[in-house]
Computed example of a mutant assay.
Amino acid sequence: MADTVHSLTTLNFITIAILLTLIGSVIQGMFRGASGSARYLLLMLVEGVMAIISIYLTWKGVQLLSPLIQNWLKLQNLQIPTREIGIWKQMYYTIVTSIRDFPLLRFGVLFLIGYILIKQILYRLADPLLQRALAGRWGRSSSRKTVWSTAAGGLIGSIAGITRALILIAVLFIFVTLFPTQPLTKYIEASPLYQKGAKEVIAPFTGDFIADKVPVFTRAVEQEFSNILQRKYEVLDARISPDIAVAAKEVTASGQTDEEKAKLLYKWIGSRVQYDFEKVKLYEEKRIWKEQTPEDTFLTKKGVCIDYSRLYAVMARSINLDVKVVTGLGYDGQGSYGPHAWNEVYLKEKQRWVPLDSTWVASGGNWFNPPNFDQTHIKEA
């Protein structure tokens, strides 16, 4: 008992937040009194039921609608223009083609729209019944509260507080499951109130669902986000200038396979383009980012990692290679990692994607699909 009291009084902001949620709800209930608290509890329960019904109906509806939307968008035969387009059209093609091609994004967009619409419809249908239920004793407020009314209001408020506290603990439980090695995770788990709620209520209620399914879903979302970022660069760099196309053809003229052509481009860009330290300095000191197109990089022969990668992607596509721009973290050679960009190219003869980093050619070594590439390059996902 003494250990429990000591742990509760130890300064832990997670414990404090949970306690304040409970205490605040009790005090709120006492001020409202029995009638006001009962009214509020009823509204909260209705809100919860409406949310659950809306989620279920939206989930089922989107499962039916998502493939139909995908097929309709495919029938539109939307192609990213190869001419120069403005920023609004760039956003349009990025969003629409991503919704067409990426199932989680499409599901998420449809779910959000469907949930809002269905919940509003349910509220409109249920509102007359709810108003009738509240029009009686609960609907009449009184400025005079008895001791019993205040006590009953506090009791009802405690029920609302427990519900709110469990919701807070559930959110923290998901965070702890997704990020078990984060310093904040250890801090959360140090809270005795969190441990009690998570172990005795949340974990038994969810079973293995959160522990098994949520991390897998999160990784899928991260991968899809990476694909959307890749699509953004595809839209931005869809236009290939004649000069770049001619140069790519000349550089890869001696290549017979996809791998040989991809490696020739990798060496050419890595040895021709110089790293633009002034661009990095301008951003680090003044937070000014000098945006440039692959054509700018090709003409000036200067750029940073993202410019190398975008130029490589455009030149590779001009000779019909499938290529991606990948963003993430790169090893700086001094024991830490920093923001970086590189490429992945698809080799048809090997039927797989391989990584390459043309930015690091000048530093020496082989950065075209070397062993342990992932030890020095960490994808953003």
Rank of each mutant, 00 (worst) to 15 (best):
R164S: 03
A165V: 00
I167F: 02
L168H: 02
F173T: 02
F173Y: 15
F179L: 13
F179T: 09
P180F: 11
P180V: 08
T181I: 08
T181R: 12
Q182S: 13
Q182R: 13
P183N: 07
P183T: 07
L184W: 15
L184C: 06
K186A: 12
E189K: 13
S191L: 04
Q195G: 04
K196C: 07
G197V: 00
A198C: 06
K199P: 00
P204L: 04
G207I: 06
G207W: 10
D208Y: 11
D208E: 14
I210L: 03
I210C: 00
D212C: 02
P215V: 08
V216A: 13
V216C: 08
F217Y: 12
F217P: 01
A220C: 05
A220P: 01
V221P: 03
Q223E: 13
E224Y: 08
N227V: 03
N227T: 02
L229M: 12
Q230L: 07
E234N: 05
V235N: 03
V235F: 05
R239Y: 15
I240R: 06
S241D: 15
P242R: 13
A247R: 12
V251Y: 15
V251L: 07
T252V: 10
A253E: 14
A253M: 09
S254I: 05
G255Y: 06
Q256L: 09
T257H: 09
D258N: 09
E259L: 11
E260G: 01
E260Q: 15
K261R: 15
K261Q: 13
W268V: 01
I269N: 04
I269L: 13
